[in-house]
């Protein structure tokens, strides 16, 4: 697919361009700041944008803010935000609209998982870093709705929240897909979430519940 990469670190940018190219993707633009990103997206209309959160000019969360603007200007553009550390301010709001991923930068070293996440997002799904999910799913000072879940159900929920399909979850946990489906029904029942069958909506529903 056609990808735009935005990262101010030349070294990292070159690395990821090479990685994506070797994986058979077409990197149509690699830019170093938020303004250039918006311009490149407008020109190239890519299938996916991979964006560093911290970029010039302000070196704070320019990438995330640019992503919010792109979401408004180019609805439906799939985006993956890369960050050096976990933050939830932008990720949760963006993830709620689908076609969005939020990963820690070092996830690129797990090349296959990373490419898998890019594909999921490009096809309208979600990809949320396990650490972010961990932070969100951990009991955070409220009566813990997740306490009712069994350990296995907890594992299943975490993978679902990262954006995996039932089949993906089953593969990772070495379970039959039907077993995963049973776990999911149980989880939705315990968390009082109605399952409408749409896979990223499941993620959103879980996230919406645990982060409310």
């Amino acid at each position: 697919m056609r990808i735009v990469v935005a990262d101010d670190s030349v070294l990292f940018r070159e690395g990821i361009v090479r990685l994506l190219t070797e994986a058979g993707h077409d990197v149509v633009a690699a830019v170093g700041d938020a303004d250039a990103l918006e311009a490149a997206v407008a020109v190239h209309r890519p299938d996916l944008a991979v964006i560093d959160v911290r970029m010039p000019p302000a070196m704070t969360d320019d990438g995330a803010r640019a992503a919010l603007r792109l979401r408004a200007a180019t609805p439906g553009l799939p985006m993956v935000l890369l960050s050096q550390h976990v933050e939830t301010r932008h990720s949760v709001s963006l993830v709620a609209s689908g076609g969005f991923g939020y990963l820690l930068k070092d996830r690129v070293l797990r090349v296959d998982d990373f490419l898998d996440a890019l594909n999921r997002v490009a096809s309208g799904g979600s990809a949320l870093d396990p650490e972010v999910v961990g932070a969100l799913l951990a009991p955070a000072g409220r009566p813990d709705p997740l306490a009712a879940l069994t350990e296995r159900e907890h594992d299943v929920l975490a993978l679902v929240a990262e954006g995996h399909t039932n089949a993906g979850v089953a593969a990772r946990l070495c379970l039959a897909e039907r077993t995963v489906e049973t776990h999911m029904r149980s989880i939705f029942q315990k968390l009082r979430i109605t399952d409408d069958g749409d896979r990223h909506r499941r993620v959103l529903a879980v996230l919406a519940y645990v982060t409310r």
Partner: peptide, 24 residues
């Protein structure tokens, strides 16, 4: 903190990506 995140970490990840590239 920024130097650690944007300097050292980036470079290590970049180096890792090169290694992955070599690995292919």
């Amino acid at each position: 903190e920024r130097d650690l995140h944007d300097g050292a970490q980036q470079q290590i990840v970049a180096a890792g990506m090169r290694l992955r590239s070599v690995q292919r």
